Simulated assay, not measured.
Amino acid sequence: MGQPVNVGVVGCGAISAQYFQTIERLPRLRVAAVADLDLDRAREAVRPYAGVDVLGVAELMADPRVDVVLNLTIPAAHAEIALRAIDAGKDVYCEKPLAAAKTDAERVLLAADAAGVRVGCAPDTVLGTGTQTARKAIDDGLIGRPVAATATMMTPGHERWHPNPDFYYVPGGGPLLDMGPYYITSLVTLLGPVASVIGAASRPRAKRTIGSGPRQGEEIPVTVDTHVTGVLVHTSGALSTLVMSFDGVSTKSPHIEVHGESGSLVVPNPNHFDGDVLLSAAGDADWRPLPESAGYLGAGRGVGLADFASTPAGTEPRAGGALAFHVLDIMESLLASAHSGAGVRIASTCERPLPVPLQDA
Results as ranks from 00 to 15, higher is better:
residue 94 C to G: 02
residue 147 V to A: 04
residue 116 G to P: 13
residue 70 L to I: 14
residue 109 L to Q: 03
residue 178 D to Q: 14
residue 114 A to T: 11
residue 187 L to S: 10
residue 126 V to A: 08
residue 100 A to P: 02
residue 112 A to G: 11
residue 112 A to W: 04
residue 128 G to D: 11
residue 148 A to F: 04
residue 128 G to Y: 04
residue 80 E to C: 04
residue 171 P to G: 11
residue 176 L to Y: 06
residue 115 A to T: 08
residue 89 G to Y: 01
residue 135 R to C: 09
residue 139 D to S: 06
residue 121 C to T: 08
residue 183 Y to V: 01
residue 84 R to H: 05
residue 166 D to E: 15
residue 125 T to F: 13
residue 176 L to R: 13
residue 99 A to I: 02
residue 110 L to Q: 13
residue 184 I to T: 12
residue 105 A to W: 11
residue 75 P to Q: 05
residue 129 T to C: 03
residue 170 V to Q: 08
residue 168 Y to N: 10
residue 97 P to N: 02
residue 134 A to K: 00
residue 82 A to F: 01
residue 168 Y to W: 11
residue 151 A to E: 07
residue 79 A to T: 10
residue 126 V to I: 13
residue 86 I to Y: 02
residue 138 I to E: 00
residue 79 A to I: 14
residue 78 H to L: 02
residue 90 K to A: 07
residue 69 V to H: 09
residue 100 A to N: 05
residue 78 H to V: 07
residue 175 P to K: 01
residue 146 P to G: 07
residue 139 D to R: 12
residue 88 A to S: 09
residue 182 Y to M: 02
residue 126 V to H: 08
residue 109 L to D: 07
residue 150 T to E: 12
residue 82 A to G: 14
residue 87 D to A: 15
residue 99 A to L: 00
residue 137 A to F: 09
residue 69 V to S: 01
residue 125 T to N: 13
residue 159 E to L: 10
residue 106 E to G: 04
residue 145 R to C: 03
residue 161 W to F: 15
residue 176 L to S: 02
residue 76 A to N: 01
residue 68 V to I: 15
residue 175 P to H: 12
residue 138 I to D: 03
residue 94 C to T: 14
residue 178 D to R: 05
residue 172 G to E: 08
residue 179 M to S: 14
residue 107 R to S: 14
residue 150 T to Q: 09
residue 110 L to C: 00
residue 173 G to C: 07
residue 111 A to I: 01
residue 179 M to G: 03
residue 154 M to Y: 07
residue 181 P to H: 11
residue 113 D to P: 03
residue 104 D to E: 15
residue 169 Y to E: 12
residue 162 H to A: 11
residue 123 P to K: 06
residue 68 V to W: 14
residue 141 G to D: 00
residue 167 F to A: 15
residue 181 P to N: 01
residue 94 C to V: 08
residue 157 G to D: 09
residue 178 D to P: 00
residue 84 R to G: 04
residue 152 T to D: 10
residue 67 D to S: 14
residue 179 M to V: 01
residue 117 V to H: 13
residue 71 N to F: 03
residue 179 M to F: 06
residue 112 A to T: 07
residue 156 P to M: 07
residue 127 L to P: 01
residue 73 T to G: 08
residue 107 R to M: 11
residue 132 Q to F: 05
residue 120 G to T: 10
residue 132 Q to G: 02
residue 115 A to M: 00
residue 122 A to H: 06
residue 166 D to P: 00
